[in-house]
């Protein structure tokens, strides 16, 4: 089941980038993690524009971990673009937010998020999250295979 497509982390906070990388390392996730720092960059990456035009260097991810509060374009805008405007296959998206405001959760799912996770606040919780991402999204979930075919 296992492929090595990248995980795309859309996150403007450098601490959170570091913490997730740390947790992924602890969980022994081997997929490369591509990091973009705001919503616009995420859209550029996914549509292969500008510095992301080389698909062999910046392949489509098998999972998107998407923060909501970001400069330029928000996570919600990225979601809306991904599901409504882009021609991309239905890439799995985990919304990864520091607030689980009821309205945000509802809206994210309406816009096509596959999961909504409140950012864990402790190291241990973050490692638990990384391990379950590995188990479910990178191992049991068949999406990687499906994507590989869709992309080709």
């Amino acid at each position: 089941m296992k492929t090595n497509l990248p995980i795309l982390q859309v996150e403007d906070d450098d601490h959170d980038v570091f913490f997730l990388a740390h947790a992924f390392k602890k969980a022994a996730i081997t997929n490369p993690v591509q990091v973009v720092h705001d919503g616009q960059e995420a859209i550029d990456y996914l549509s292969g524009k500008g510095r992301f035009s080389d698909r062999s260097k910046f392949p489509l991810p098998c999972l998107i971990i998407l923060d909501l509060k970001m400069p330029r374009r928000t996570g919600m805008e990225v979601l809306a673009w991904l599901r409504q405007e882009s021609d991309l296959p239905p890439l799995p998206v985990i919304v990864f937010s520091s607030s689980a405001h009821r309205d945000d959760v509802d809206r994210a799912f309406v816009l096509g998020a596959n999961a909504f996770v409140s950012k864990p606040s402790s190291v241990e919780e973050r490692i638990r999250f990384a391990k379950s991402v590995k188990e479910f999204w990178l191992y049991f979930n068949e999406i990687q295979e499906a994507l590989l075919h869709a992309v080709r």
């Binding site: 913490f19 606040s121 402790s122 190291v123 973050r126």
Partner: peptide, 12 residues
Amino acid sequence: APLRAIQSYASI
């Protein structure tokens, strides 16, 4: 948020 970052870095 920064407080949690402090805690996390210290426990890492």
